[in-house]
Design a protein around this nucleic acid. Structure first.
Lengths: 221, 221
DNA sequence: TTTTTTATCATGGTTTTCCGTGATTTCTAG
DNA sequence: CTAGAAATCACGGAAAACCATGATAAAAAA
């Protein structure tokens, strides 16, 4: 008898975990080792025992410590964990980001149930796996087509923002004016305006609204 | 033998439906009649056959036609359907909004699995049901405490925005300037500026960023 | 150590947003 | 029928955001 593939599931919505468990239970080759409801729990688990799971199913959107940070934790601590990211967003930048953080598969929640079993088996087997809609956006971007309402020519990812830029960005989303931000951070207004300009350029949006939308999308807020 | 409670589940994430089915299947008094993956499917279903489900589990966040619109459809067509709203957000305004649209229960996805069975039975029985974290925000608001980072004194709900206002708001979130919006809608720039001002006042935010954040929160975008 | 990045500030000019205030028309609900 | 939304437009002024460009010091990386 073959050894079962052990998976660990991390998602802040318990009900979604139940869904995955239900689907996975229909397959005799896979079994759920355990689950985490927060990013912190995942990190705790991997810091205590040695990793037992063959594959980690990881939600990106979690409060406090999100999927990105969990992946960074693995990277920083040289933990070689096969990870499949589960996300509501089919944004190419997120895909790029998690891939660069060493994740092996990416499936969209929209059609998770039909892809998850194949994804787990593929990744456990050392391959990569992407659900069909994610493949679609990847192909689109390769063929130069517009992806996600049209601002794809950006090499600029979340982590290319510096601490300060991120700080300013957050305050912008709180509707602070440049002057208020300057006061808050004890800096010159000119400096803040410079950050604004840089953010606009880096993120490649037209105005503060674009920055806010970007911040939301990448759950910076 | 008692009759089973029939439920219908609507959520755009298939995997979440599987989760609910898995949980509900553990209870002998409830069974899942069917499910919908889009708001349109829900409406279609209720417009064809006569309603068979005792309770509808409805996700608020769905593309194109969201939960709000489904509830409005019921209201407009005098369909008396017991509905439990399932949401990722514990924002009081959303709770108020769905309640005013005739929904009988509201549970947060965060702890859906522990509340869903009780919620279904309560609602099927003509009662109301709210998951614990939702009750918490309701209590907070009643005791006058701040709910959800502090701007709760607004009588201004999503539906108090007119069609035009909503249209302008959407374009603002797409980073259009007033002039561009005017062009797009074939209106005077002055008119658009008027809408901007009205939106700021109604929603009670400082600037366009605030409008964008509001739009995101209330999934207008 | 040299180069690059980050953080900081500045000047001057253009565009856009924000604010107050008020007016007309059409449509709708009392 | 009439009062009130809703949609439309206008003017003038203040504030804020956006744009271009460049500079300096410290820290980090190569």
């Amino acid at each position: 008898m073959k050894k079962k593939i052990l998976i660990h599931v991390a998602d802040d919505h318990q009900i979604l975990i139940e869904g995955i468990v239900a689907v996975v239970d229909t397959d005799k080759d896979i079994s759920v080792e355990g689950y985490s409801l927060t990013g912190q729990q995942v990190i705790d688990w991997y810091s205590n025992k040695d990793n037992i799971a063959d594959v980690l199913i990881l939600d990106i959107t979690m409060p406090v410590i999100d999927g990105f940070q969990v992946l960074k934790y693995f990277q920083d601590n040289k933990i070689e964990q096969k990870v499949i990211v589960l996300s509501s967003y089919d944004d190419l930048r997120i895909v790029q980001e998690v891939l660069s953080l060493g994740c092996k598969g990416y499936i969209s929640k929209n059609n998770a149930s039909e892809h998850i079993l194949r994804a787990i088996k593929a990744v456990a087997n050392g391959e990569q796996y992407f659900s069909s809609d994610i493949q679609a956006v990847m192909v689109k971007s390769l063929t130069g087509q517009d992806v996600e309402q049209g601002h794809m020519p950006n090499d600029f990812l979340i982590n290319s923002l510096t601490e300060r830029e991120l700080e300013v960005l957050k305050l912008i989303t709180k509707q602070y004016s440049s002057m208020q931000i300057a006061d808050r951070l004890c800096l010159s207004v000119n400096t803040i305006e410079t950050y604004r300009k840089r953010l606009l350029k880096k993120i490649n949006v037209k105005n503060a609204v674009g920055l806010a939308m970007y911040a939301v999308k990448n759950n910076i807020v």
